[in-house]
């Protein structure tokens, strides 16, 4: 499966300034593994020992993967996956 991944500003140093890249994988975990192969250090920035870092949100299309199946969430061909730092507001 080929997906588009939107890269947040803090990670663009790894992707040579690209704000979106293509990646392969049938699940979010596989997509991140693919990004790690191409951009070493990527996975460690997004994940910790428990899964997705608590101040990182990952969306497939409009859906937060925490409402789906987490890292096992399916990434359909052509999907857009967005990695976004959590921010407070009100």
């Amino acid at each position: 499966m080929s997906v588009t991944v939107k890269i947040p500003t803090p990670l663009r140093a790894l992707t040579k300034g690209e704000d979106a890249v293509q990646a392969q994988g049938a699940t979010v975990a596989e997509v991140i593994a693919d990004l790690e192969r191409r951009y070493p250090g990527f996975a460690d920035r997004v994940l910790d020992g428990k899964g997705v870092r608590r101040f990182v949100n990952i969306y497939i299309g409009e859906d937060d993967i925490r409402f789906l199946d987490g890292l096992k969430s399916a990434t359909p061909d052509g999907a857009t996956l967005a990695i976004i730092p959590a921010v407070a507001g009100g």
Binding site: P8, T9, Y59, V87, G89
Partner: peptide, 27 residues
């Protein structure tokens, strides 16, 4: 939460350059 996500993306886009988002990049 959708609005917040939108603004987070706007900040990383040229459309949002020069904007001070009080509860995002000025948080």
């Amino acid at each position: 939460d959708d609005v917040n996500r939108f603004c987070s993306e706007l900040i990383g886009d040229p459309l949002g350059e020069g904007w001070g988002f009080v509860n995002v990049n000025l948080r």
